[in-house]
């Protein structure tokens, strides 16, 4: 179905590029399993919004390697339309959109798809517990996330393991949105940061991939889809470090709990929380920077700035 309100391409459709041979992928520098990548997080880059933020992971990125780039903007609290039923709490809505050029291989359409809907709902669930919604009755708070660029790994899971691309997008979106909510000056009980961990089985050096005795998977913090290795299972959490509460948990892949003799779930949860706690430090810095700027600005305003006289 064509979207008549946008300019569409040829009616027969177009095909993504097919390469003769495998394009040479830039090799990422090797990283220890518990080494985290650097994050760039800055608030107030969309001045018309009540609050906004921009996140980039990793930053700086090695040239030619994919990165995750997200912008978040928050509007509200603003009155709900008169047609909306009475609500004693603020109504939080989150909308996550991928830009058409954000994903590898194929261009995305503008029409919202199931993946975006799913991530939007997860994001909303992760954030709603951190906001004091009771402080804003009859109001709406809207969060918009735009994914400008992502690292890939969105193809879905197969026998070879699970993909962590969407989890990274969600974790980034949680952190970015929480910074934007704080930038908007909306009352929160805590900030939420997102963290991802995965159990990755790396191919033994020089060994045969079909080797019978595979190495045991190790917990990798902040895994990247471009890292390589077989991801056995992965988890993403939304974590409020100040209250030590997990607002969201999403896992993929097979794992065992303690009563089954395995400790994979615990390992993954601990790993994801460790990542989220580290991300929280970045979040704290970004919010602090914004706060100091706000204080400096309000001081400036008090000193100067008279009223305009209406003649």
């Amino acid at each position: 179905m064509t979207d008549r309100r946008r300019i569409n391409g040829p009616s027969d459709g177009t095909t993504p590029i097919v390469y003769a041979g495998v394009p040479k992928a830039k090799q990422l520098p090797p990283r220890a399993p518990d080494a985290l990548r650097k994050i760039f997080l800055k608030t107030s880059l969309t001045p018309p919004a009540t609050g906004s933020s921009f996140l980039e992971l990793p930053s700086p990125a090695p040239a030619g390697t994919p990165t995750l780039k997200l912008t978040a903007s928050v509007y509200g609290p603003r009155p709900l339309p008169p047609s909306a039923p009475f609500s004693p709490h603020a109504r939080l809505t989150a909308e996550l959109k991928f830009a058409p050029f954000s994903t590898p291989h194929k261009r995305r359409g503008y029409v919202r798809d199931a993946v975006e809907r799913d991530l939007s709902v997860q994001l909303q669930n992760a954030l709603v517990k951190s906001i004091k919604t009771a402080a804003y009755p009859k109001s709406g708070i809207d969060i918009f996330i735009t994914v400008l660029d992502c690292e890939g790994g969105l193809d879905g899971d197969d026998d070879d393991g699970v993909e962590v691309g969407l989890m990274n997008v969600l974790a980034g979106a949680i952190t970015c949105a929480s910074a934007a909510v704080a930038d908007a000056g909306i009352e929160c009980v805590d900030l939420v940061s997102g963290g991802v961990a995965a159990l990755v089985r790396r191919a033994p050096a020089g060994g045969d991939a079909m080797d019978v005795d595979l190495p045991a998977p190790v917990v990798v913090l902040d895994p990247s889809p471009a890292d390589g290795g077989q991801v056995v299972s992965a988890a993403v959490v939304g974590y409020m470090a100040g209250r030590d509460e997990v607002t969201l948990l999403w896992t993929k892949g097979a794992m065992e709990t303690a009563d089954q003799g395995g400790d994979e779930l615990d390992l993954l949860m601990d790993g994801a929380i460790t990542t989220a706690t580290a991300v929280r430090l970045v979040l704290n810095e970004a919010v602090k920077e914004r706060l100091l700027l706000g204080i400096a600005r309000s001081r400036l305003k008090k000193e100067g700035g008279g009223d305009v006289l209406m003649s």
Binding site: I7, P10, S11, F144
Partner: peptide, 14 residues
């Protein structure tokens, strides 16, 4: 239709 131009404003830009 070799050139397909679109401007998207529904990103929370305003």
């Amino acid at each position: 239709n070799l050139i397909v131009t679109n401007l998207e404003l529904g990103t929370g830009c305003s």
